[in-house]
């Protein structure tokens, strides 16, 4: 609410919000409940960056069924909180990925799936590819080329552990690293 009109109506909403956040942040119960809620509600955004998307799709299919973990691929970036970088990102795609990441609401997490997203994979010396960690803060890596769907499931579990571990930071803005 930067404009003058907003200030008149809403007063110091920012201050109120900050105080409310501080209050909520102190409560252990709220933190636990919240980390439980986010744990089982990791919704990845529909953004396929490369061919590992095929195994990502298989991970949602009946045999692996990641919806068991509350992992539901979902439409736009505004409603989601998990970005899975599937395999290689080209320079053209990296610009999109970065932008999608910025569109997502906090708190949000990133999984780098596949050898290419980790370290370049077999495309390591290509002129058009870039590694995920160079432009995104990555929370979990999934090795493999392409990784089996089970490996992706394990990464989701790792993210869940991370959320439990870092439950103090859930309400504030996540640090960019």
């Amino acid at each position: 609410m930067a404009d003058a009109e907003g200030l008149i109506y809403l007063g110091n909403l920012d201050d109120v919000a900050k105080k409310a956040l501080e209050f909520l942040n102190k409560s252990e119960f709220i933190k636990k409940t919240l980390s439980w809620g986010i744990d089982f509600s990791l919704w990845p955004v529909h953004l396929m960056t490369s061919c590992c998307g095929a195994e990502f799709a298989a991970a949602a299919s009946p045999r692996f069924d990641l919806e068991r973990l509350g992992f539901l691929p979902f439409g736009g970036p505004r409603q989601t909180n998990l970005l899975v970088v599937e395999g290689t990102t080209t320079i053209k795609m990296a610009r999109v990925v970065k932008r999608v990441y910025e569109q997502m609401p906090n708190p949000k997490w990133v999984i780098a799936m596949g050898a290419c997203a980790m370290d370049g994979g077999i495309f390591f010396n290509s002129y058009n590819t870039i590694v995920a960690r160079e432009y995104l803060p990555v929370d979990a890596y999934v090795p493999g080329c392409p990784p089996r769907p089970e490996a992706l499931a394990r990464a989701v579990l790792l993210i869940q552990e991370k959320i439990k571990r870092e439950k103090d930071a859930l309400l504030g803005v996540k640090n960019e690293h």
């Binding site: 409940t33 919240l34 986010i38 509600s41 509350g70 309400l171």
Partner: peptide, 9 residues
């Protein structure tokens, strides 16, 4: 769980 997540996003 989804509702909780939404509420505090």
């Amino acid at each position: 769980a989804d509702l909780l997540r939404y509420s505090f996003q």
